[in-house]
Design a protein around this nucleic acid. Structure first.
Lengths: 187, 187
DNA sequence: AATATTTCTAAGCAATTGCTTAGTTTTGGT
DNA sequence: ACCAAAACTAAGCAATTGCTTAGAAATATT
């Protein structure tokens, strides 16, 4: 007995996510969001509560996308070489027209730091744990490394991945290749 | 035949820099700046033109500080071990009360990306070049590595340093230690 | 066809943004 | 002591921020 929504949450949030990914949280205004999402501000607030709500759903959307395009492929690969390929895949994944957007989650931590909403931070931490577990999995594959070494190397790769995310915004392809190549000499 | 300024540009810009370092560019408002710098908005604009101007001088101030506390020490050290110490020094350098602020220059690139002012970007690039040259210098110290290998390793260390900057905001001391230790295994 | 319920449009809200300006106070040279 | 030049205070500017609301349009049930 009511009017039907003219949009699907899933579809408009994907566009919001892309905008946040390109511009960061603060720089993205609600006016920009309604334009990009193609719906009125009223609908934005009706569906997601507030700007933070839109961002939280955007984070979830990003995680799904990364899970599908990066983590699943990693889990289906073999050994350390699979992790290396993950690094290369990430660069492609985060490519924009001319530049690189980095990782949305890394960008968020870097921008908001400890001011970030707890719900949002918890989503980010969960994903990071997820990635590290996959790394540990691959590092253990056909290897007699002890647990301590594997954890150490997993920590190493996690930080290296953050480095790739930031550096991809300002460094050229050769420099990033150099980085990845030398990075995997150490594991 | 005129009134004297009641502040020194150098002193108030140091405080502005600290504020930008803690909060980033967008989040730092001119009202926050005048409060922290202890001078009226009029004086802010009279001395530095606009917000970007304050930021540009803050960047220069940061570079001086980093030059003195990090680069000079690196240049006076020996070989690769000196670079490793640079990484550890950076963590101390960027420490706040509870958390880490990362590197102001890295934070800026990450926040503003390609939207950053050209003057500001040029200051950042100059500093990065500076750091890389010091790395190359240390990598060449008592070493028969060829030029290509040295450049490759310098690129590697530059990206690794970005990683440390971002990761220091969210990872614990053990994880950062693991990172630094493994990073320097093969250089 | 009438009704109740939801979604839409679009105008409007107070608060904050970067920046300016009017007017007062301080100063050194005459 | 007076005056011109610079630096101060504090109020005010238009534009933008996140968010709300009044009212019109659309729909499934009766």
């Amino acid at each position: 007995m009511a009017r039907r929504k003219e949009y699907k949450e899933e579809e408009v949030i994907e566009k919001a996510m892309q905008l946040f990914w390109r511009n960061g949280y603060e720089t993205t205004s609600v006016r920009m969001l309604e334009k990009e999402m193609g719906i009125n501000q009223f609908s934005v607030y009706a569906s997601f509560g507030n700007k933070q709500g839109v961002f939280l759903e955007s984070i979830k959307c990003y995680k799904k996308k990364a899970q599908f395009e990066l983590i699943d492929r990693l889990d289906n690969s073999d050994g350390v070489e699979g992790i290396k390929q993950y690094f290369y895949n990430f660069i492609e994944f985060s490519k924009d027209k001319n530049s690189n957007k980095g990782c949305l989650l890394t960008n968020t931590v870097n921008e908001l730091g400890e001011n970030a909403d707890t719900l949002i931070m918890s989503e980010i931490v969960k994903f990071a744990t997820n990635v590290k577990e996959s790394f540990i999995n691959k590092l253990s594959f056909n290897s007699q490394k002890d647990k301590v070494t594997i954890d150490k190397q997993a920590n190493y790769l996690m930080v290296a991945l953050q480095g790739l995310s930031v550096a991809s915004k300002m460094f050229n392809a050769k420099q990033l290749d150099d980085f990845i190549e030398v990075t995997f000499k150490n594991v």
